[in-house]
C-alpha cells in the first residue's frame, strides 16, 4: 500500500485512547490505576500532536519536539503524583479514592 493513511485515522485513535483513559479515570477506585489512566490520556494527546506535526505543513515540523517535552513533563508528574499517593497511603492506610471525601458537604 503506497497510499498515505488519512490523518483522521491517527486522530480517531488518539481520541479513543483519550476517551478510554477518561473513562478509567472516572471509574476506578484505586488511585494508582487512576494514574495509569491519566497516562493513557496523555499518550492519546501526544499521538494526536505527532500526527499533526507529521501531516500538516503549517505545523512547521515541531510536533515531535513538543511531544518530547510532554513526555518529559509527564514522567515528572508521575513521580510527584505517586509520591503524593504514598504520603496519603501512609496516613490513611488506603489508596481507595472513594474514601478521600473530606470535602463532602
Amino acid at each position: 500500500m503506497n497510499q498515505a493513511l488519512p490523518i483522521e485515522g491517527y486522530l480517531v485513535v488518539g481520541a479513543l485512547m483519550f476517551a478510554i483513559g477518561a473513562w478509567g479515570a472516572l471509574i476506578r477506585r484505586n488511585a494508582v490505576v487512576v494514574f495509569m489512566c491519566i497516562e493513557l490520556m496523555i499518550n492519546g494527546v501526544v499521538l494526536t500532536l505527532v500526527a499533526f506535526g507529521d501531516y500538516l505543513p503549517q505545523a512547521g515540523g515541531v510536533g515531535a519536539s513538543y511531544a518530547v517535552l510532554v513526555i518529559a513533563i509527564a514522567a515528572a508528574e508521575v513521580a510527584v503524583g505517586l509520591a503524593i499517593v504514598l504520603a496519603v497511603f501512609r496516613s490513611r492506610r488506603t489508596v481507595n479514592v472513594d474514601e478521600a471525601n473530606l470535602m463532602k458537604w
Binding site: 498515505a4 493513511l5 490523518i7 483522521e8 486522530l11 480517531v12 481520541a15 479513543l16 483519550f18 476517551a19 478510554i20 477518561a22 473513562w23 506535526g53 507529521d54 501531516y55 500538516l56 505543513p57 503549517q58 505545523a59 515540523g61 515541531v62 510536533g63 515531535a64
Partner: peptide
C-alpha cells in the same frame, strides 16, 4: 462514550487543509 463519539466526529468532519501528505516534519 459521548466524549469518544464527539471527538471522533469533530475530527473526521474537520477540513485539515486539503490533501495532506505525511512527511512534513
Amino acid at each position: 462514550a459521548g466524549l469518544a463519539v464527539f471527538l471522533s466526529y469533530i475530527v473526521s468532519v474537520q477540513e485539515w487543509g486539503g490533501q495532506t501528505e505525511p512527511g512534513q516534519g
